[in-house]
């Protein structure tokens, strides 16, 4: 455990990068959502009328804002931290395990941060003007478990996806990183094609699981990315 803890400390060495910035991103996304709602309110008045509020229920900012940054954190954690950890006498396995614990911490923080913003949003009656960032349709409109689970899975999927491609780059170089990106995209398109082809089965699953179907798919993808990064990491060289 001592060896794994060292890699965890490496991941957490820059707190701003691993802990605070994901929360800043959630905050900035909320701020922009409120500002946009405020600008709309200049012409339609405050509080925002019902039709505008209904549209804001489909605000996907929380879905789009965190993945880009977290993907880059995943890339750097498994790519640049790899060189550092090996220079400092770590094993590949310990680096992967320590970093994975770090990913869990970051993702949990994103989930909890989302709950805090949701609570603030509700306590202020949607930022006093009817603006919505977390009390939205795809986060089950205030369902705490769905909000936490969705944001947690979104974060950990982004981190492991970045870790996978970062490790592929470290092990096989630029060409194979591009090839693996193409293959992953084709595989995802294949799954979508399968879902369309078997539309009756897909409908049945959607009826029984609802949005949890997408969350389960996200969890499976995160596990696949994690397993892929672990397997490739064993072959990576400095």
């Amino acid at each position: 455990m001592t060896y794994i803890r060292r890699s965890l400390r490496l991941y957490l060495a820059n707190r701003s990068w691993a802990l605070y910035t994901p929360l800043y991103i959630l905050g900035i996304m909320t701020m922009f959502s409120v500002i946009i709602a405020g600008i709309i309110g200049i012409s339609v008045g405050y509080p925002l009328p019902d039709d505008i509020v209904q549209n804001m229920r489909y605000n996907g900012g929380a879905l789009y804002a965190p993945p880009g940054f977290l993907f880059s954190v995943g890339v750097l954690a498994m790519n640049r931290n790899f060189s550092m950890a090996l220079a400092f006498g770590s094993t590949r396995r310990d680096l992967w395990l320590g970093t994975s614990i770090g990913f869990l911490i970051t993702s949990t923080l994103v989930g909890l941060g989302s709950l805090v913003f949701l609570a603030l949003e509700r306590a202020t009656d949607h930022w006093f003007i009817g603006a919505r960032a977390f009390d939205v349709q795809f986060l089950a409109e205030g369902d705490l478990v769905r909000t936490f689970t969705t944001m947690f899975l979104l974060a950990i999927l982004s981190l492991y996806a970045g870790a996978f491609f970062g490790t592929v780059f470290r092990a096989f170089g630029t060409v194979w990183t591009a090839v693996s990106a193409i293959l992953v995209t084709l595989a995802l398109l294949g799954v979508i094609a399968l879902a369309v082809w078997q539309s009756s089965l897909t409908s049945e699953l959607w009826d029984s699981l609802g949005a949890w179907l997408l969350l389960n798919i996200a969890a499976v993808l995160a596990l696949l990315a994690a397993a892929g990064s672990y397997a490739v990491n064993r072959r990576a060289v400095v």
Partner: peptide, 8 residues
Amino acid sequence: QRYNDAFS
């Protein structure tokens, strides 16, 4: 030696 770009 490469370090994490974000690290001082």
